Simulated scan of single mutants.
Amino acid sequence: MIRLLKYKYHIAFLVFLSGLYGISLEVIRAFNSSNFGEFILVTSFYFTTQTNLFLTITSLFFILKLHNKSWYKYLIFITLVNVLVTAIIFHILLAPYMENIELIQHVLHTVNPLLFIIFYFLFYEQVLPIKKFWICLIYPVVFLISVYLIIEPFYGDLMVITMPDFNSARYVYPFLDPETYSREWLGLWSFIFVIIAPFIAIISFISMWLKHKIDTKFIFINNKKA
């Protein structure tokens, strides 16, 4: 672990560059649209975009040696769970229904999440107590509230116009559109509270448990060698 940790800033820089690359691809795609400003605005509403911004900023803070701040361990863990949710939901709920997965999708949903996961579990030293696993739910809740109280009411029509090929574009993702379900809002809330929320909580708990196990194992090995 000690040998690995000496490369932690190198790995953080790699995550940062990859994050910038993913964001750059989104900016380039916006330039190729008919209205750059509207496309950028709409793109910023996606959980994937926000997650990649988070991992880019989080890795930058690490490079700037802000990772010892008390708030950083919360930020990096929330980012980790967002990254896991982004990757898993894309590959399970979205990718199977996409006819063509472009480079940008691979970078944002696979490459960047994988790099960040490696960075967190092998190169980041601090860890939250397992009892605080619920913290990961804060950001998804804020995101859901923004979808139904801000994005859909005020930008729904713009979403549909800007992303005409996306099903249920006004709700950002198809699985957040109540019309996707036979029982509409009841089906939607059942999906969110019975499946999505427990799913995120379980991912959070397992991630914390695994981080503790990894760190404990490496600390034990290092102490034994010393």
Rank of each mutant, 00 (worst) to 15 (best):
E152N: 14
K217N: 07
I150E: 00
S70G: 09
L210N: 04
W189R: 01
V15E: 06
A197E: 02
V194L: 11
Y97S: 04
R170G: 00
K224W: 11
E179F: 12
L128Q: 08
Y139T: 04
A12F: 00
I192R: 01
L210F: 13
I89W: 06
G156T: 06
Y155W: 15
E152M: 05
T86L: 05
G22N: 05
K225E: 11
I57R: 06
I200L: 03
R3A: 02
I206F: 14
H67K: 13
V27F: 12
F193R: 02
I76K: 05
T79Y: 00
H106I: 12
I130F: 12
K224E: 05
Y155N: 01
P129T: 03
P174C: 02
F13E: 08
M208V: 04
Y7C: 06
D215T: 09
W209P: 03
L75Y: 08
F39C: 02
A30S: 15
M1T: 03
V160R: 01
Y46M: 04
I138G: 13
F77I: 02
I92P: 04
L41P: 06
P96I: 08
F133W: 15
L14C: 13
L122A: 09
Y148E: 03
I118T: 11
E152V: 02
H91T: 06
M98T: 10
F36A: 06
L144E: 07
K213T: 09
M208I: 08
I138T: 04
A197L: 11
K6I: 06
L14T: 13
V85L: 11
F133I: 03
F31M: 13
L5A: 02
L158V: 06
S207N: 11
F205G: 10
F61C: 15
T110Q: 10
F77H: 05
F45R: 02
S33D: 12
L80M: 09
Y21S: 07
T86H: 06
I89L: 14
R3I: 04
V107E: 01
L94Y: 14
R183H: 14
I2G: 00
I28D: 01
I117W: 07
P140F: 06
L20W: 00
V142S: 11
Y72P: 07
R3Q: 10
N167R: 04
S182N: 12
V107I: 15
G19W: 00
I145V: 14
V141R: 01
F47D: 10
L84Y: 07
L158M: 15
H212C: 07
L158C: 04
F31V: 03
N82V: 02
L17A: 13
V141E: 03
T110M: 13
C136V: 10
I206K: 07
V111D: 10
P174V: 02
V107W: 00
H10N: 09
